[in-house]
Amino acid sequence: MSRRDLLLALVVLAWLLPAGAPQAELVVVVNARSGVSAMTRGEVVNLFFGRSRQLFNGIEAQVADLQDAHPDRERFYRALVGKELADVNAYWSRQLFTGRLQPPPQLKTSEEMLRWVTERPGGVGYVDLRHADARVRVVYELKP
């Protein structure tokens, strides 16, 4: 095979491969023993923006978020409400300034998020679908 043929084959192969690594879907998860099996988009929005403090069955919701540096945080809010992180952070700054609400605690990793949700009866968080396991129940899938 000539150098030209090899180069042409590499170009064709690169063109056929998807651009970048595929990202799995983000999902909202709850404690597997919470009794919650599904949530609507509105319920998820209300929980993550502090407008609701309870799950539909009366259990106190204990929502966790990821830190700004975690790439899934930006993906989550863009898919959930179509907002950039600056907009989400500005919302929480206003809530803090007025004394109305405290933002959810921010965790560093998906594993910390899974532990948070698992250790609390009303634990609610989000992870990449690849990380969801038997410790949690997937209740909402975010579409990119």
Rank of each mutant, 00 (worst) to 15 (best):
P103Q: 11
T118G: 14
V30G: 01
V29P: 00
K83P: 00
S2C: 14
T109Y: 06
L10E: 13
M1Q: 10
R41P: 04
V45N: 02
K108L: 13
V139H: 07
E60L: 13
E74W: 01
I59N: 03
A9M: 08
A14G: 13
L107Y: 04
Y140V: 04
M39I: 02
P71N: 03
N57K: 08
E141S: 14
A61T: 01
R53H: 12
F56I: 08
R75N: 03
L47G: 02
D87S: 15
T40W: 03
Q102L: 13
S2M: 09
L114Y: 03
V117E: 08
H70W: 04
G20E: 14
R33Y: 05
N46A: 14
Q102A: 14
R53G: 15
L16F: 08
T98E: 15
R33W: 06
A69T: 11
P71I: 02
A90L: 13
V36P: 01
P104F: 05
L80T: 01
V36L: 10
R33M: 07
A86Y: 03
A90D: 13
R4N: 11
V117F: 08
E60T: 15
T98G: 15
V117T: 09
E60P: 08
K83Y: 10
L10P: 00
L66K: 01
R115N: 15
G99L: 10
R73V: 03
V138K: 11
P71R: 06
L10R: 12
G50N: 10
M39V: 07
F97C: 07
L7D: 11
A14N: 10
G99V: 09
V30H: 00
L16D: 06
A32S: 13
A32L: 03
V45H: 02
A64D: 02
R73S: 08
Y77K: 02
L55Y: 01
P144N: 14
D133C: 09
R135H: 07
